[in-house]
Design a protein around this nucleic acid. Structure first.
Lengths: 198, 198
DNA sequence: GTCTATAGCTGGATAGAC
DNA sequence: GTCTATCCAGCTATAGAC
C-alpha cells in the first residue's frame, strides 16, 4: 500500500486545481484562494472549479481530505517502524503542512462541512496514535512507563504543532528545552534514536 | 477562574467597532469581518471604520493589540499570586480567545503588519513567563526541579492551546491524561492547587 | 463625527458555445 | 472537458454633504 509516490503527480485537471489551491492557501490564506486565482495558477479556466467540485467549499474539503489521507498513510508507516515513537515524533514534527492546517481550522470557523471533516480526521489520527503508543508502552517491559499513552500522544502532538507554528513567526525561545524534554522521554522508552537513514 | 468577562465597555465608536469586529472575527472568521458588517454590528456607518482606523488591516492590528494588552495584564497578575505556576496554567488554559487567536494567525499569513505584531506580542509573553517560571524553579529548594523553565513554559503553553483548540471541535480523547501530566508537575513544584476562590 | 453616494474591483456561480 | 460571457453580490476606500 501507498507506493512511494513523489507526491505532486499531476493526474489531470482536478489534481492540478487541488495543487494550485494548496499552494495559494498555504502561502496567502483562504481569502486569496478564489476560484479565479486557483484556476489561473493551475493554467485552467475558473469554470472548471465548479465543474469538478461544485462549490469552493467542496474544493476545500476535497483538498483537506487528500492531504489528510496522505498524512495518515505516512503515520501508519512511521508507526510500523522499529522505533515507533521516534518515527511518529519525526513524522508530526517536520511536516510542512502547518500553515495549511491553520487555514483549514480557520476555514472551519464558519464552514460546517469543513468542521466535521477536521473532527473526523483528527479522531482517526488520535486513535491510530493511541493504539500504537499504548502497545509500545505495554511492551516497554518491567519498568513503569514514565507517562500514560494519552499524555504522551498529546504531549508530542501539542508541542510539535506549537513549535512549528512559532517557528513560522521566527520565534524559538525555549524550543530547545521543549524538544529536549520530549526526546528525553522517548529515549527513556525506546532508547537513543537510531539513524533514520532517510 | 473566568471572572466577569472584561465586559465590552463602550467608550465611543472606536471601541464599539473593535467589539463588533472581535465578535465577528471569532464567530465567522476574518473573511466575514468586512467594514460593512463590522460597522453594521456596531450600529454605525462603514465609513467610520476608515475614519478611525485607516484600513481594515489597521483595525485588525488595533484589535489584536487591545486583546494582547488585556491578556498581558492578566498574566502579570496571575504570575504575582502565591502559586504562580497554577495561576499561569489557569490563565492560559481557560482563555476563550482561542478562535480569535487562530484568526489572527491565519490573517498573518498574508498581512505583514499582523505578522510582526504577533511575533512581538508572543515574545513579550514568553519573556514574562520565562522570568517568572525561572524564579519559581530557582526558589524551589533543594530538590532538582523536574523540568527546565523553558520546557515547562512551552509545555504549558502548547498543551493548553492544543486542548482548547481541539475542544472547539468536540475532540477530547486523551485530554484528561494530558492535563494530569501537566498538573502532576505543578503539584511537584508548588504543591496542590489552593482554591482560587474566584 | 457621522452620514450618503459612488468608484472600481473581485468574488461565486451559471448558461451555453464548442 | 474546456472555454467565454455574464449576472449579481459584496468588498475596500474615498469624496463630500451635513
Amino acid at each position: 500500500m501507498s507506493s512511494g509516490r513523489p507526491v505532486p503527480v499531476d493526474e489531470g485537471s482536478p489534481a492540478a486545481l487541488l495543487d494550485a489551491a494548496e499552494k495559494i492557501l498555504a502561502e496567502e490564506g483562504y481569502a486569496a484562494a478564489s476560484s479565479r486565482r486557483v484556476a489561473a495558477a493551475a493554467g485552467l479556466n475558473a469554470a472548471l472549479v465548479y465543474y469538478y467540485f461544485g462549490t469552493m467549499d467542496d474544493l476545500f474539503v476535497a483538498l483537506f481530505r487528500r492531504g489528510s489521507e496522505r498524512s495518515f498513510q505516512l503515520q501508519q508507516e512511521a508507526l510500523a517502524s522499529d522505533q515507533p515513537l521516534w518515527s511518529l515524533w519525526e513524522a508530526i514534527h517536520d511536516r510542512s503542512s502547518t500553515a495549511l492546517t491553520l487555514e483549514f481550522i480557520a476555514l472551519a470557523n464558519h464552514r460546517k462541512a469543513m468542521r466535521s471533516e477536521i473532527t473526523r480526521s483528527a479522531l482517526r489520527f488520535r486513535r491510530l496514535q493511541l493504539d500504537a503508543v499504548t502497545e509500545v508502552l505495554d511492551r516497554h517491559g518491567q519498568q513503569p512507563p514514565p507517562v500514560s499513552p494519552g499524555a504522551l500522544v498529546l504531549l508530542m502532538s501539542s508541542v510539535s504543532r506549537f513549535l512549528v507554528m512559532e517557528r513560522e513567526f521566527d520565534i524559538a525561545v525555549g524550543h530547545e528545552d521543549a524538544v529536549a524534554m520530549v526526546e528525553d522521554i522517548l529515549v527513556a522508552i525506546e532508547g537513543e534514536r537510531r539513524s533514520t537513514a532517510a
